[in-house]
Design a protein around this nucleic acid. Structure first.
Lengths: 192, 192
DNA sequence: TCCTTTTCTTGATTTTGGTCAATGTTTTTT
DNA sequence: AAAAAACATTGACCAAAATCAAGAAAAGGA
């Protein structure tokens, strides 16, 4: 059940069997069915969720009821309303399963205990968030500097798996476009 | 010369005099005149730069010569091409002073040494990058979900000081808009 | 202070992408 | 297997924002 979690962990820094056992003691797992919430806006986000299996999305809903997808998470990704997790304030984002999924959960206090007992884990955590920051930065850059067509191509080249598994209108939402526009971009690209 | 740097450091976690002396030993400073580069695309980004005084911008230039601003940094902010800094690959961004500035520089090896000798500094570093991630996430959200007018208002409410000190066309670039559009948004808002 | 450069504004025009609506297709649920 | 829901495509139209161009204002440098 925790295979992928520990595989990813050891990819960046090697952890001993002992360290891994300590860490494992603080983890729990959860299954979420398609269309079920892992987190709802307004609730406090109590955990980080590492995706062992499945696919989830994190999004806001505006006054007009339109959904804006901030993040997808497939196997091996971490998803959470990080601000709510860190501060204990109510969440501003929703997290929902796109496919039946399995996640590994880490609470705030669990994370703090792990930091104390396995200091290397804080280094891992720092590298993890640094990677997430860099990805977010690239996304901002694509949003402010690329044409819509380039933006779509950039996304598909970066995340081909997401394109395969996620409905097109969600990709449109992630890119800040309407479904119609994405459909037209695809048509135009296919013509080439 | 390092006043603000240590002030910010102690805001999040308290460091002893001893620890601060160790850290100080790894820092250097640099003055940059307005319009001078701290980093040019293609060069390797050797340092993180903490802004003690002044204002800088980080940006890309596209094929048409248009500038896209990824980040501003005023006093107390850190600026760097983080990917280049982490990996040693050539930088994809430029960093330039908007005003005459003074920065505190930390090289990669200096950072690693500080992590070893002052472990708390890695916690600080993790919190620092987490904050940067959250800010970037909010910016993505504003880019995909707000109208241009809302985006402008969001920016000005979040960073009133930047609005005061930085030319309007740079703010347009940061927001992914043309200078003309920002001018018209301002006109419209003033009419209210 | 004067000159130069940078910055901001405004108008006219064009392009882009959103909205609305209808239809067909695929997927999910019962 | 049938019904329902979700998804994708297409066309017509409209609104929003970019582009182009000119001129005014402000700031920086000599």
């Amino acid at each position: 059940m925790y295979e992928l979690f520990f595989q990813k962990l050891n990819e960046k820094i090697l952890f001993s069997e002992e360290e891994q056992t300590i860490i494992k003691g603080y983890l729990t797992t959860k299954k979420i069915r398609r269309k079920q919430y892992l987190l709802q806006e307004g609730d406090v986000c109590k955990t980080l969720a590492f995706v062992e299996k499945g696919a989830l999305k994190e999004y806001t809903v505006d006054e007009k009821g339109a959904e804006h997808i901030l993040q997808f998470a497939l196997e091996g990704w971490i998803i959470s309303d990080l601000y709510s997790f860190m501060t204990g304030e109510p969440a501003t984002y929703n997290i929902e399963a796109i496919e039946d999924s399995e996640v590994v959960l880490i609470t705030k206090s669990a994370q703090e205990e792990i930091f104390k007992k396995v200091p290397k884990y804080e280094s891992y955590s720092r590298m993890q968030i640094t990677g997430a920051y860099l990805a977010m930065q690239k996304r901002v850059n694509s949003l402010i500097s690329l044409s819509l067509e380039e933006r779509y191509l950039y996304f598909t080249s970066l995340y081909p798996t997401i394109v395969q598994r996620v409905p097109q209108h969600m990709i449109a939402s992630y890119l800040g476009l309407t479904p119609e526009t994405v459909s037209r971009i695809r048509k135009k690209l296919a013509a080439k």
